[in-house]
Design a protein around this nucleic acid. Structure first.
Lengths: 208, 208
DNA sequence: TTATGTGAACCATTTCACAGCC
DNA sequence: GGCTGTGAAATGGTTCACATAA
């Protein structure tokens, strides 16, 4: 089944909201309420949630815990992912310490950098290897996902090198550049500076 | 004139690419080439670029420098923006040191935190104030844009407090939560953990 | 009566196809 | 001949409106 990107994004948001509602002891919610809390139309919420079968009760709403489990099941990965983080700079360290990054779906198994000070030691408790050894370590640790927190200039070469391992399936890049994905590798880019530019552009033009 | 969000995002990308091409000494590019380098269809590139008037030369292509200036003009803000950064944690510091964040379009004028160690001193050379003084400092320094690098739990209260200053126009939030925007304030959220979840979801389902 | 689930209508964005200019 | 600019067609996503079930 194919599911649109905006839908996946909202599913994650529903999940977070439901977790919160669960803690507050809420038992049921309506699409209307979810919409208000997340800034979405109720019809949008219903369409998203009905995408994977009838889960709500007509005339009542959605059972919080049941819906949560349901969405978790949809988002849940087929297995635990091993992740590698390339670039032990401040952004990299920030991510490693980031609370929302703790999950039982994945774990960061290796850090890569070129700084001799860092290579051989640990960063936030995770062993740090030289970037040159990417293919070797990726295979050894069966790492399928990389997070890139490196400058734009070295991003593409890291992608090409890492692809040699053959285990690589996905990349989340924070490098402010467009990367070319090798066959069979899915690349997602989060470009912080682009987001700020977009915000400033709309502040200029739209003057909400 | 209204311009779609995906278009703005691509305009920023064109800009970055053109800068690079300029450094390489390139004089002209075709929509075809731009598309290949950025992973877009040539027709998409042409549509985006023709949005603000005829800028290319038929049978030739786009003059690199001329196109760069043209897009810069579109993206350029009406004035220099003063920005405040709330949350002097690792992510906040990472952003302050982030190269792609240096720009003549804006500058970070104040940092806010609740840690007594930081308040009163400077962070990356920028004075740090207590978060409680947000409205006061925002007015004093005429800050219109805030970047939030704080936990989800305190994000909404910071937004509400900052809105009291009346100068606030836009927010770029890294807090993993949905924020409610006060009237007249544009909120952009970058949710790093959601991006990773999306990537893992597509790795599970699409198996490209 | 209330709130979901969903086909149909609507709107936005992308892609096509070709006319127009260099 | 080559490449842009652009109306028209196609695609993708959101919203509506109402049948349906609790």
């Amino acid at each position: 089944m194919k599911v649109a990107e905006p839908t996946v994004e909202r599913l994650v948001q529903y999940c977070r909201l439901l977790e919160q509602l669960h803690e507050e002891g809420r038992r049921v919610v309506s699409s209307q309420e979810i919409g208000e809390m997340l800034g979405l139309k109720a019809s949008q919420v219903r369409k998203d949630l009905s995408y994977f079968g009838e889960i709500g009760k007509r005339g009542v709403g959605y059972h919080v815990d049941r819906l949560f489990d349901h969405i978790q099941g949809i988002l849940a990965p087929p297995h635990h992912w091993s992740i590698g983080l390339v670039g032990a700079g401040r952004l990299g360290e920030a991510l490693l310490g980031y609370k929302a990054f703790k999950s039982n779906k994945f774990s960061v198994e290796a850090v890569f950098d070129v700084d001799p000070e860092k290579v051989g030691s640990t960063v936030s408790g995770i062993p740090c290897f030289h970037s040159d050894s990417l293919p070797k370590i990726l295979m050894e640790k069966n790492i399928e996902v990389l997070i890139l927190t490196i400058p734009a200039s070295s991003a593409q070469s890291v992608v090409d090198l890492a692809a040699k391992a053959g285990t690589l399936k996905g990349i989340l890049s924070f490098a402010p550049t467009t990367l070319v994905a090798p066959d069979g590798v899915l690349i997602y880019g989060v470009d912080i500076s682009v987001e700020l530019e977009k915000l400033l552009f709309y502040l200029k033009h739209c003057e909400v």
